Amino acid sequence: MSTTVRAAAKINLHLGVGAPREDGFHPLDTVYQAISLYDDVTVSTASSTPSSTASSTPNSTVSSTVAEDSLSVSGSSYVDVAGVPTDATNIALRALDEARCGGAHLVEIAKQIPVAGGMAGGSADAAAALLAHDRLHDLRQPDDVLLAQAARLGSDVPFSLVGGTARGRGRGEVVEPIVDHGTWWWVVVPAAVGLSTPEVYRHFDRLHPDAPAQPAEPTELLAALARGEPVRLARALHNDLQEAAVDLRPELGDLIDRGEAGGALRGMVSGSGPTCVFLCDSQEGSAEVLAALSASYDVVLSAVGPVAGAHVVDMHQVGTGLR
């Protein structure tokens, strides 16, 4: 038996970062949005053979056996999976340990979400693995149980379960859906080389030794989402980590300037980077920005948001996503 769950990339429309707490984590006030770049995660019992439903063409696959579990990873042509761990450190395997229901499993990940790009691809894989394991074994755990398991795995994992547009507080793991009356068109430009999230946070601390204990609230951005106004949303987009990311990788600033010159309403670094995303005024506008950036960058993608959180796309038992 096997179950395949699809989970979306996330971007941060607002990422407010406070001074580090005593436990070392930074308090966040963030607005997440799930967009239409997906990873598919297939979880199978070890006696069956997994079969990925991803529509992309894999460029490579790596696999490893960890205890009784095994994991393989493949990716679209623009996704370099060489750096994705296939041992017990992979967050998808940690998700199985979080909600173990006996026996060995095979896990197959087919990636469209850029690796180490600030779009929570690993968190999406963990959320998908949690839900796939639950449905594979017909556990039917309540949503709050799955969300608690997700929060123990990482700050972005609960949102990857919920999807849509949501506000995250605490470390980002306390997730609350918010009103979003828009359909938002994005152009996404991944970087060939990743950027370390811990290093970006450390550089933020160096640049902002006097950061407030609690970040500012995204009041104007929430109003723009509720009204579905692209220009208003563009003006309200905010990322406290962008300065640190651009300071570490100045070419990201050049990319943002090129995208805005090519017609984007606004460009910004996604999360801790290095992927950059561009808000456009329409589907036609996103096609124009995509064409403009494709003249200078090898990989330029289009996406729309918000989209659903982790949800079943193929299984031998009845079930879908969170209830």
Score class of each variant (00 low, 15 high):
M1N: 07
M1S: 13
M1A: 09
V5R: 02
A8S: 12
A8I: 03
K10F: 05
N12G: 13
L15D: 02
D23N: 14
D23H: 08
G24T: 01
H26T: 06
T30A: 07
T30N: 06
V31A: 07
V31S: 05
Y32S: 09
A34M: 03
T42N: 03
S44G: 04
A46L: 07
T49I: 10
P50Q: 06
S52K: 06
S52I: 07
S52D: 09
A54R: 08
T57E: 14
T57R: 14
N59P: 07
N59V: 11
E68Y: 01
D69H: 13
S74M: 09
G75W: 08
G75A: 10
A82H: 13
P85W: 00
T86F: 00
N90I: 00
A95S: 11
D97F: 07
E98Y: 04
E98K: 11
A99D: 10
G103E: 01
G103Y: 06
A104M: 06
H105E: 05
L106K: 12
V107R: 09
P114V: 08
P114E: 08
P114I: 04
M119T: 03
G121L: 04
G122H: 00
L130G: 01
L131R: 03
H133G: 07
H133K: 07
D134W: 02
R135S: 05
L136A: 05
H137F: 13
D138V: 13
D138Q: 14
R140E: 12
R140H: 15
R140Y: 15
D143W: 04
L146K: 02
A148Y: 03
Q149P: 01
A150R: 00
L153K: 05
S155L: 06
P158R: 12
F159E: 04
G163N: 10
R167T: 01
R171E: 03
G172Q: 08
V174L: 11
P177G: 00
V179S: 12
D180Q: 09
H181D: 15
T183A: 12
W185I: 01
V187D: 08
V188C: 06
A191D: 03
V200S: 12
D205I: 15
D205C: 15
R206H: 15
P215L: 03
P215K: 06
A223I: 14
A223T: 12
E229F: 09
R232I: 14
R232A: 15
R235I: 07
A236V: 13
D240H: 15
D240E: 02
R249Y: 00
P250F: 12
D254V: 11
E260H: 05
M268H: 05
T275Q: 11
C276F: 00
V277Y: 12
C280I: 10
Q283A: 15
Q283W: 08
S286T: 00
A287S: 11
A295Y: 07
S296I: 00
S296D: 10
S296A: 14
D298Y: 00
V299I: 09
P306H: 08
A308E: 11
A310K: 03
V312F: 10
D314M: 07
M315Q: 13
M315V: 10
Q317K: 15
Q317I: 08
V318C: 12
G319P: 14
T320A: 14
